[in-house]
Simulated scan of single mutants.
Amino acid sequence: MAGNRNPDVDAWFERYDNPQKDLVQAVREVILGADERVTEAVKWQAPTFVYRGNLASFYPKSKAHVSLMFHTGATLPDPSGLLEGTGETSRVAKFLDPDDLDAKADALRGLVAAWIESKG
């Protein structure tokens, strides 16, 4: 378990009632484990990952899969094609199940690393 967890986010998860709860937690662990400088907070009524700005937030109402919105994902290099969307700014990463997360975990860590590098 990562040492950069926020008790406010832990409390949010205690109240979170969603069939994807375990998978959301697993995505959380991958992101927090990718770099100890990444922290988390509850913003927009959902867990949000932060490092010198808002990196990504969960869509907590998604029940078919886990959706993680990268606030400025359009600016991040995404060689694996993990991010979906065509908007000018944000992009979304979707995770269908634990196997899908396992397959995409390295790409997710790469996005975290690219974000940190872009923030100097």
Rank of each mutant, 00 (worst) to 15 (best):
A2V: 02
K104W: 01
A2G: 08
F70Y: 09
A11P: 00
A113I: 11
E36S: 14
Q20R: 09
V42D: 06
T89W: 14
H65M: 15
A26M: 05
W12R: 04
W115N: 10
D106N: 09
G33Y: 01
K104G: 01
D99I: 01
A113H: 10
A11Y: 07
S80D: 14
T72R: 15
A34C: 09
A11L: 07
V30I: 11
A107D: 02
D106V: 10
E88D: 14
Y59H: 14
F70Q: 08
I116K: 08
M1N: 13
W44E: 08
W12C: 02
E40Q: 09
Q45Y: 12
S80C: 11
R91K: 11
A41W: 08
G73M: 03
D102C: 09
D10Q: 12
G87P: 00
A46G: 05
F49H: 00
D99M: 03
R91I: 03
Y16A: 00
G110P: 02
V38H: 05
T89V: 15
A93M: 07
A41P: 10
L23F: 03
K61Y: 14
G87W: 04
E40L: 03
R28W: 03
P79S: 09
S90F: 14
I31M: 06
G87E: 07
S90W: 12
S118H: 04
H71C: 07
A41G: 13
S62K: 13
V38P: 02
G110D: 03
S62N: 12
V92H: 09
P7W: 02
W44M: 12
D17Q: 13
A56N: 07
L83D: 07
I116N: 04
D100E: 03
P79D: 04
A26F: 02
K61N: 15
N4K: 06
P47Q: 07
A34W: 00
S57P: 09
A11G: 03
S90D: 11
R37E: 04
F49T: 00
Y51N: 08
L23M: 03
Q25W: 13
N4E: 06
G81W: 02
G87R: 07
G3E: 13
E84Q: 14
D100H: 11
D17L: 12
S118E: 11
P98S: 06
F49Q: 02
L101V: 10
P60W: 13
S90Q: 14
